[in-house]
Simulated scan of single mutants.
Amino acid sequence: MADSLTVMVDSPPKPEFPPEKAHRQRKSNQDQIATHEPEHSPSTIQKAIAEFVGTYILIFAGCGAALINETLPLTIVGIAMVAGLALTVAIYSVGHVSGGHFNPAVTIALATVRKIQLKLVPIYVLCQFMSATLAIFTLKVLYHDKVDIGVTVTQFTSSTSHLEALVWEFIITSILVLTICGVATDHRGSKDLAGAAIGISVLINVIIAGPITGASMNPARSLGPAIVSGVYKNIWVYLIGPTLGAIFATVLYKFLRVSKPAKPEDRT
């Protein structure tokens, strides 16, 4: 009996695969999964359409609120709520398809830190500008002459200098994009609440800066109304300010980001 026990201890059952073969098997399975993943990811045209639709929702609702405010006062709080909720709706509707940028400044900034493929940048930006222009044109057609479409054009108050307006747009866009980086691009963030958090950041920014600069935070939001109305005064402020603010926020968050730990099987 003692001899038989000794045999059992000294001769454990052999594994089904040797360690080297098991590792190769796991690697093969991972490669097969990686091979099939692209088949289930959105195509470039699907992403472009999602950006177009999401931007349209955002601009149509946000600028529509500004038009309604001319006849039925919503106050800055009401306009801010519409803008924030519109972005939240757009993110939860099609954000999972394209990443939910709906803003050229966001797209350019994320490309700066390589969070989006460079080939998608011109496609996204073009779709965003075209969508914003179409949204304003739609509002103009629907409202006829009841309200001047010019009220949707972002302008800063006469008491505000160009530099001050630039700084305002830089800061509020930085807040918006820092929120996006924290909740949507970081593996530690709460993805389920990303849309709500980003929408709230827009609401806060519009309440604070809306009466001063119009709180654009989005070059498409400013260029669309400018094209339809033909008013391009100070447009450069709303193209440069948000873009620089967005880039600053993404670069800043790059230093705050923690690398995602490797899975145990990746270290074998």
Rank of each mutant, 00 (worst) to 15 (best):
A135P: 11
L139F: 10
K140N: 14
V141S: 06
V141W: 09
L142V: 12
Y143E: 12
Y143G: 00
H144E: 14
D145Y: 10
D145W: 04
K146R: 12
V147M: 09
G150Y: 06
G150M: 13
V153P: 05
S159Y: 12
S161M: 05
H162I: 13
L163Q: 06
L163N: 05
L163F: 15
L166E: 07
L166H: 02
W168E: 12
F170C: 07
I172S: 01
I172G: 00
I172N: 02
T173Q: 02
S174V: 04
S174K: 01
I175R: 00
V177T: 04
L178W: 11
L178G: 13
T179G: 14
I180Q: 04
C181M: 15
V183D: 03
A184H: 05
T185H: 11
D186Y: 02
R188P: 07
S190G: 03
S190T: 11
D192H: 08
G195S: 11
G195K: 07
A196F: 15
A197T: 00
A197H: 01
I200T: 12
S201E: 02
S201R: 00
I207S: 03
I207K: 01
I207P: 03
I208E: 04
G210M: 04
G210D: 08
A215R: 00
A215C: 13
N218P: 04
N218M: 02
N218T: 04
A220V: 03
R221W: 07
R221N: 10
R221V: 08
S222Y: 08
L223H: 00
P225Y: 05
A226P: 02
A226F: 01
A226G: 03
V228K: 00
Y232F: 15
Y238N: 07
Y238P: 06
Y238V: 05
Y238L: 03
L239K: 03
G241V: 01
P242E: 04
P242K: 01
T243K: 01
G245S: 09
G245E: 11
A249N: 13
A249K: 09
T250S: 14
L252P: 05
Y253F: 13
